[in-house]
Computed example of a mutant assay.
Amino acid sequence: MTIDKSCITLQNRRCPEFIKGLNSFIEIAKNHVDDEGKTCCPCIDCVNMFRHIVTTVYAHIHDRGFEDSYLIWIHHGEEYPPSHLDNLWASKYRSTRVVAEENPHEEMFNVIDDVMAEEDPHIENISQEATALDPEFDALFEEANTELYPG
């Protein structure tokens, strides 16, 4: 079965083709969840480095778009074609994936995911003040996302 991935490159994330492609992807993603019901998120920001519940993945992709380079959905059931160059790329990518999974902040992001999962991901136009949990928490969260050595 060939998977239509044309929605990945669409800029208009509100057009029917994008929504149809996103829904197709979500159906595939539902079959590739871990014990906690989370799957890799291929949005522009997460780039399959973080796992979220399926509704959060839907919201991320809808709001941010697909990572353009995620053409072979290896985290969602596809396998690499038997090509020497692809195998070289795969071994390099897997090694960076292992390093990313050892990120000590990953646990914090999982906790935040669990808290945020209770919110409706389809609600739009929420003011910044309504989403702030606590100024001290926000400062810690921003600090956790700041590069120690930029560049």
Rank of each mutant, 00 (worst) to 15 (best):
S6F: 01
S6D: 09
S6G: 15
C7N: 10
C7F: 14
C7E: 08
C7M: 13
C7S: 14
C7R: 08
C7G: 10
I8S: 05
I8M: 12
I8R: 13
I8D: 06
I8G: 01
I8P: 04
T9P: 09
T9G: 12
T9K: 15
T9L: 15
L10A: 05
L10G: 06
L10H: 08
Q11L: 10
Q11G: 11
N12K: 05
N12E: 01
N12T: 02
N12A: 05
R13T: 07
R14W: 10
R14Q: 13
R14F: 11
R14K: 14
P16E: 10
E17K: 10
E17N: 09
F18A: 04
F18E: 02
I19G: 06
I19F: 09
K20E: 14
K20F: 05
K20S: 12
K20A: 13
K20T: 13
G21V: 00
G21C: 03
G21T: 01
G21N: 08
L22A: 03
L22E: 03
L22M: 05
N23W: 05
N23G: 12
N23K: 15
S24M: 08
S24F: 02
S24G: 11
S24Y: 02
S24H: 10
F25D: 00
F25L: 09
I26R: 02
I26C: 09
I26P: 10
I26Y: 05
I26A: 13
E27F: 08
E27L: 13
E27R: 14
E27S: 14
E27P: 07
I28H: 03
I28D: 00
I28A: 01
I28N: 08
I28R: 07
I28E: 00
K30E: 12
K30V: 07
K30M: 09
K30C: 09
N31Q: 15
N31M: 11
N31D: 15
H32K: 05
H32T: 04
V33A: 11
V33D: 03
V33F: 02
D34R: 00
D34S: 01
D35P: 01
D35G: 09
D35E: 14
D35M: 09
D35K: 11
E36G: 06
G37V: 02
K38L: 06
K38G: 00
T39W: 00
T39Q: 01
C40D: 14
C41S: 03
P42D: 01
P42V: 05
P42A: 04
